[in-house]
Every structure is written in structure tokens, then in C-alpha cells.
Design a protein around this nucleic acid. Sequence first.
DNA 1: AACGTAAGCAACCGCAGTGTC
DNA 2: GGACACTGCGGTTGCTTACGT
Length: 410
Amino acid sequence: MGRHSCCYKQKLRKGLWSPEEDEKLLRHITKYGHGCWSSVPKQAGLQRCGKSCRLRWINYLRPDLKRGTFSQEEENLIIELHAVLGNRWSQIAAQLPGRTDNEIKNLWNSCLKKKLRQRGIDPVTHKPLSEVENGEDNKSQHTNSLDMASGASSDLNLNTDKPGAVLYEQRLVYPLEMEGCSSSMTINSGNNLMASTASKDLFLDRFPCTSTNSQPCDLAGHFPIQQFNYASSSNGRLSSSLNPTPWITQTGKAFHINSEFPSSSMSSLLPPLTSSSFLSSPVAVGFSPSMASFTANNNFAWGMADCSTSEKEEAPIHLMESQAEEVKWPEYLNNPLLMAAALQNQTPQSGLYSMEIKSETHCSADNSLSNSMWPQNQQQQQQQQQQQGLQNSDMCGKDIQRLTTTYGHV
DNA sequence: AACGTAAGCAACCGCAGTGTC
DNA sequence: GGACACTGCGGTTGCTTACGT
């Protein structure tokens, strides 16, 4: 590993972070937010470059991270998302609350690729290895035909309103390990995304076609969960303007979790939208409970330290009137053990993802929630900071900014 | 016990996108 | 419009640990 040029010039530290450095960074960001990363190390008293601080925070210190081994459902989801998104780890990570792109990338490279190969699936193309080995000619031929069908565009096109524009093709059914699962999302080489009819409804709801002229909210009342638009990036990267944003139905329409796409499939770790748990405000979608708690909980101030008042006011935290019956914030806030247990075992059915955010006061009232999810030393630090009266810092995270950008005023 | 290898993890590098001046 | 700084992302590398011989 080389050294950053900036690190070299300033003789900054590199390599593993010491607990003391972690504490400094954590304390600084907790108190002031990160603001401009380049200024963080100086302000925090660290001999690191801002880039290194950012990485450390994102991949390790962020309190909403879910540490530990990946569940089978998470692994399956990663495989499916990888089939759709390729090596867009940040996009994949966006669908797995509490997981970092780095973590997922490591898992993929060290574990999942091997697993797929063992199952006879090429981890790059997600096609059967035998087919990959045999069919280079077929592949190019096939791709060409798809390009023609899709108007020679690599855009994701699932618009059923346009006859002939939809590409559905059964290419590969993942041998998912969960019982009863027959997920049938299919992927072809290249950037053409297809979904089999079995998962079509789900997929259309999950990933409403951006087509060529997508709007942030379509006429059917969907919000974007993910705007796929491969054509927008010539080098295969997604433009940052296409940050993952959740699609939910504006009217409370549930995602189609059809019988052929059960819990272990792609939907498994995404927010379930049942009529009882659905939030008319998009704010809760895309937030894990922990994230939501920290976002609403003023104990932490990561994010833009200089969030303006107007941004705060415009942040679409329009808290829902009571609709979710299954889970109530106060129940979890008042019972950190319950919350911790729920987080450990969270499933779509748990309703946690769509847990309503009743009010900011609810979320800030109880510190035990966040404490329950922290390593011991971090809990202690946090308690100390709380004792020092560290409260009510700005909590305009970028998620909120993103939501604001996407939806404007709600 | 010593050594070699594989696996997993954490961090760095380089590039691209974006915003600001 | 160009230069620069900042940020985010994906690829890659190096270290540590576990495991096998």
C-alpha cells in the first residue's frame, strides 16, 4: 500500500487506526459533524488525511453500521443485486442497511464469487459457467438482438406501456438456498436488465423504469428506489445524480411480493410496504431503524455540520400520523433490549423498516436506544458526551438532503 | 512447534463527478 | 471555460488470523 501524496507531504500517519485515533475522530464527528473532510483531521487533532478519516468513519465508526457476518438473506440479496448492478458496490450497499460498500465488496471477492462458481455460475456474467465457456459467439449474437429490441440502448427498460419495449427473458434462475425460493430475476450479459414474468410485478415496483425520461415521481405515484440509467454514464459508472433513492408507492400500494418471490429473494431486505406499515412520507424508506433513530436523535451530528436552517426546515421529515400498528417507536425507544433484538433479527415482516417516526421528541427522548447498538467503549464515550450536554446538534444527514433534493417539499 | 497457504479484513490508490472561484 | 479542491467510488494491496501440513 502506498501513501497518499498528501500524507507523504505532511508526514501523516497511514495504516491501521489506533483506538485513540478512532476516539478522536468519533468524538469530533459526533460533536461537530464531519463538514469538510479535509479539515477534519486538523480539527480533530489527527495526523491523517481527510480522505482517510472519511473512509474510517464510513467503513468502521459510523454508528449505524451492522457488524458481524452476513446472513444468508443478505448474501442472496447481494448476489441478486450484483446481477443487476454489477460491481456498483455503493448501490448494492444502499439496499443493505448497515452494510458498507467495502464490506460487501470484500465479501463478494472473498466468498460469494467462490460460492457462485461452486454452483456453476459465472460470477461476472451470472450465467451458467458452461454457457459462458461455450457461448462467446452466442453471447454477442444475443446481445445484439437485445440491443435491437431495446432500441440499441443499454437503459433499463421495463416499461410495460410500450409494447415491445420490455425485455423479459428467462436466462438464469439462481439456486437460492432458502426454502421455497424460486427467485427468477434474470440477467443477461452487458447492461441489459431483464426480469422474468415471475418477478416482473415486484421488479416494476421496486425498480420502476426510468426509461428515457423518468420523473422523480411517476403518474402512478411511485417514488424512485433506484434510478437505473446505465446510458447516462459512458464509463459504466452511475452519475452521482443517480444516487439511490427509494421507490415507494405514494398511495400506500404495497410492493408485489408475489409467491414466486418470497422473503429470501430480492425483496427480503428492502422495506416492506404493507397497508398497515406503509408510510405516506418517504422519509422512513431507506433508513434502517438505527439510521432513523440516529437521524432523528440529536445525539449525533454527523453529516454536514453547516446544515443551514432552511435545509433543516425543508427536510422532508413530515412525521406520519399513526398508521403502523405493529411497531411503535416508543416501544423500542423505551426498551433497548427489544430494539437490539429486533435489529439482530430484523426481517421485512418485522415492520421495522417501515417503522413510523412519530416525532423528533420521541426519538431524542431516550438515549438507551443508540447505546444499545454501540460497542461498549463507544457507549461510554457517548454517555460522557451526553453528560457534557452534547445534544441537539444538527442532524441534516445527506440522506435527508438527498430526499429533499429528490422530493422537494412534501 | 514451525512453516506455508488461504481467507478475511482494513486501508490505500487512482479516477471521475461535482462544486466553487 | 479552466483550474482547483473536495467527495465518492471501485479496484487493489497489504496485514492479520486461521488452518493445514
